[in-house]
Design a protein around this nucleic acid. Structure first.
Lengths: 153, 153
DNA sequence: CGATAAATCGACCAATTTGTCTGATTATCG
DNA sequence: CGATAATCAGACAAATTGGTCGATTTATCG
């Protein structure tokens, strides 16, 4: 019931949340999330346009989440991809139900509202806090520069 | 976020509920619900195959809801069209999360479950009971044969 | 500055969904 | 039985979505 693109966007967003701060290349994201590498840029582009993600080019570039994972809701991602279409007018705008939504669409809209609220309440941070993430998604332990025998000549 | 076809199916089902008992032709349903007449048969066919509706051919034929409106849930209609896809396995079945859903998909599946439950709780009957239906949808007052000066020679 | 590594943009193709039409089947009525 | 009114089945056209690729821009490093 979700479009595939939305699925892709959600996976990417969660992954960027896991790696928060470090720019991730499309290549890396694709590897981690199993989204087709050639399609991924289009998906990420939508997140960029929605100001959820910034993409910087050039060496050491990549995609980074704009806000902290706790501050990004699922709804933000959903809205970036396919705005939850609230039913604001009955598709069959007969003269009969003047202004009001007919019961059918009132119900549908209600369900949309519920879904929307559920989306809004859940943040990337919450999801990341739960156990069960693939190990490879854990932000790799950043070796402190001092501790590593960094061969910087 | 719903497919157009599902929308069509819902409208049709509610309408058939309103007209419960009387066979309605595709023509009549299309007029009432503003679903493209040429597409409607395909939609109704799916409801027929799901045993929600029977379609009888020939003169005085048409489509009739199988069960009483109170006994048909929105979920029934949804399932007939596009089964709510519960996430039963993470699309990225990495070796990491063995058997378990990853948090992301656990969440998504939760929301699906909620939606599903909401769908199941709402019946066509409930919708029909609410005020606001287009007048044209009210089952036209059936004139009692005795009261009408029926010209039956 | 030149090489390289990345996102971005746009054109294009493939697959799915939506919509249309025509012919076949089946029931009813006289 | 024959005419008519309806669903049904399937082929086909159009539109939307998903996916691919190559050229362009932008940043970093030496």
């Amino acid at each position: 019931m979700f479009s595939r693109t939305l699925e892709y966007a959600l996976r990417s967003a969660v992954y960027l949340g896991a790696m928060y701060g470090k720019p991730m290349t499309a290549q890396q994201i694709a590897d981690a999330t199993a989204v087709p590498l050639s399609y991924l840029p289009k998906v990420l582009q939508q997140l960029v346009r929605a100001n959820l993600v910034v993409g910087t080019r050039g060496l050491h570039g990549g995609y980074v989440l704009c806000r902290k994972p706790k501050e990004v809701s699922i709804l933000d991602v959903v809205n970036a991809i396919e705005p939850v279409c609230r039913v604001d007018q009955c598709p069959l705008h007969l003269p009969d139900h003047n202004g009001q939504l007919c019961p059918l669409h009132r119900r549908i809209d209600d369900m949309m509202k519920h879904a929307q609220e559920a989306f809004q309440k859940t943040t990337l941070g919450e999801i990341l806090a739960e156990p069960g993430l693939p190990d490879s998604w854990k932000p790799e332990v950043q070796p402190t520069p001092a501790a590593t025998p960094a061969p910087t000549p």
